[in-house]
């Protein structure tokens, strides 16, 4: 057993420093907001479901390090494995939308909606698809992290 073993064994206590937990508490919403921002802007600027999902997972991972599994699970609310399934269903749903309209599976559909005055918003199935990716990536990464953390 090297010196790091003892550090690792006492990880739970060592990691629960006040600085880290305070920082995590404050950073969490910011990082999550940032991940959502990346997801939304992904279609036009660098970002997207993959990055967004990973950043969100990193945020929860940070929380996991700062607090513990129960806290993180409570924050997540949904079991991460459910998130994986949910994400896959969202992706499937976005693909099937075109299919129900008689087009090949995964054909994109777009709609342009007016918000107020000159402001328009363009929504299409690819955006939903991207959100599905976000959920799958987040769910999968959190499944792994939580399962590992619960091993102790």
């Amino acid at each position: 057993m090297g010196p790091f073993e003892t550090v690792a064994k006492g990880k739970k206590k060592a990691m629960r420093s006040i600085i880290l937990s305070t920082a995590a508490r404050f950073l969490m919403p910011m990082i999550l907001l940032f991940s959502a921002f990346l997801l939304l802007r992904g279609h036009n600027l660098p970002g997207g479901g993959f990055v967004g999902g990973l950043i969100a997972a990193a945020a929860f991972g940070l929380y996991l390090l700062a607090f513990d599994v129960q806290e993180t699970r409570r924050l997540l609310r949904i079991d991460p494995r459910t998130l994986v399934g949910l994400g896959l269903l969202v992706v499937l749903g976005s693909g099937l939308t075109g299919w129900f309209k008689g087009k090949p599976f995964l054909t994109a559909l777009w709609g342009r909606y007016r918000l107020t005055g000159f402001l328009h918003i363009e929504i299409g199935t690819p955006l939903i698809f991207d959100a599905g990716i976000y959920l799958v990536v987040l769910g999968s990464a959190m499944t792994m992290l939580l399962a590992l953390a619960e091993e102790d």
Binding site: F50, L54, V137, S140, A141, M144, A147, L148
Partner: peptide
């Protein structure tokens, strides 16, 4: 991009 993400999944799986 997808390769990076999948590699992560493979890595985690191999590790466990």
């Amino acid at each position: 991009l997808t390769a990076i993400v999948i590699a992560f999944g493979v890595l985690a799986f191999t590790l466990v």
